[in-house]
Structure formats: structure tokens, C-alpha cells
Computed example of a mutant assay.
Amino acid sequence: MRAVLFDRDGTLVHDVPYNGDPALVRPVEGAAEALRRVRAAGLATAVVTNQSGIARGLLTPERVDAVNARVQELLGPFDAVLHCPHGPADGCACRKPEPGMVLAAARRLGVSPAECLLVGDIGADVEAALAAGARAVLVPTPVTRQEEVAAAPVVVPSLAEAVEVALAAARERS
């Protein structure tokens, strides 16, 4: 394991639907410490986030970039930040659960998808990781459906515990 990819909304920060306001960004409990541990272990980090608000006309790419910048101000720099601007009906290859963003993040980080672990809060995150050949850890929130929890290969109750899974996987490979 050489890289940990994170979903943004609901995983790293509290989910504010179609958020285009950096002032509304609030990290989830333990996010800063979890990311500090990942970085201290020498693992690359990336954010992979669906932002259909762009396709729906509710957000501009600039607003998404501003929110992503605020996430990095609060949680430290990521080696890559990717977003999918498409809507569910657009048929793109990047929108999770499709694997495109995971594959693109791996390329940007200079690692293979098999060397990545994606941490997310819904089934689409898990599906995207698995479709790309990466590992996945689900951290359920109140919006996570029970069938998504049942289908996930690894489920943990917190971001801190998801990072423990990633660090253990990194130690396995070294």
C-alpha cells in the first residue's frame, strides 16, 4: 500500500449538499490526526470526490476548487485532488462508482491502483475502488445504506480506524 485515497463529503468533512462555500467546511472528528498519521507513514494522499452540482448548475468548478482549497487548509495538503463534474446520467467514466477517478489518482501519484486504498462513506466509493483494482474501506454514516455496509469488504466505524487498516496494509507490503 503506497497511497490512500479519500472521498471528501461525509468522509473527510461533514457533508453539506452541493457545498460551494468554503466557510461551511467542517472536518469530521479525527480527520486531521488521521491524515497526519498517513503522511507520517510516507503514504501519498488524494481526494476523489463526485461533484454533480457542477452538472446540475448548482456549483461552478471555481466554487468546488475553493471548497477543496479550504479542505486542504484545514487538513493539510493532498498529493492530488480530483473531482468529477458530471451528473449521474452523463455516462462518464470518472463518476464513482466508475473507476476513472481512482485510476487517474493512481496515475497522478505514480502508483498502481493495487497499491491504493480508498476510504469512503457510501457504496459508490467502495465500488469505484474495487472496479479499479484498489482496496476499499467503508466508514458508514447515517446516509450509508445497509446493503452498502453488507457488500463492503471492510467496514470500520471511524476514519481513524480506516487509517489503521491502511497503515496495516502498508506494513504488510514493506
Rank of each mutant, 00 (worst) to 15 (best):
R2T: 02
V4H: 02
L5D: 04
F6S: 01
D7G: 08
D7N: 08
R8D: 00
D9H: 10
G10N: 11
T11V: 02
T11E: 00
L12M: 04
V13I: 15
D15C: 06
V16Y: 08
P17G: 12
Y18P: 07
G20I: 08
L24D: 13
V25W: 01
P27H: 03
P27V: 04
V28Q: 03
G30K: 08
G30Q: 05
E33T: 15
A34Y: 01
R36W: 06
L43I: 11
A44K: 14
A44G: 13
T45K: 01
V47Q: 00
V48C: 04
T49M: 06
T49N: 04
N50D: 11
Q51C: 03
Q51S: 07
G53L: 01
A55C: 06
R56C: 05
L59A: 12
L59S: 10
P61C: 10
V64P: 06
V64D: 04
V64C: 03
D65R: 15
A66Y: 11
A66H: 07
A66C: 07
A66L: 04
V67S: 08
V67H: 11
A69H: 13
E73K: 03
P77N: 11
P77M: 05
F78M: 04
H83L: 01
C84R: 07
C84E: 06
P85Y: 00
P85S: 08
P88E: 12
A89W: 14
D90N: 11
A93R: 15
A93P: 11
A93I: 10
C94M: 02
K96D: 02
P97I: 00
P97E: 01
P97D: 01
E98H: 15
V102Y: 01
A105F: 07
A105T: 13
R107Q: 15
R108K: 14
L109W: 01
V111T: 10
P113K: 04
C116K: 06
L117I: 11
G120T: 06
I122K: 14
I122W: 00
G123K: 02
E127K: 14
E127A: 15
A129V: 07
G133T: 12
A134P: 13
A136R: 07
A136H: 03
V139Q: 09
P140S: 02
T141M: 09
P142N: 05
T144P: 12
T144G: 08
E147W: 12
V149F: 01
A150T: 12
A150K: 13
A150Y: 03
A151E: 09
A152E: 07
V155L: 04
V155T: 14
V156N: 13
S158L: 00
A160W: 00
E161R: 14
E161S: 10
E164F: 01
V165W: 03
V165Y: 01
A166D: 08
A166R: 10
A169E: 14
E172Y: 02
S174E: 14
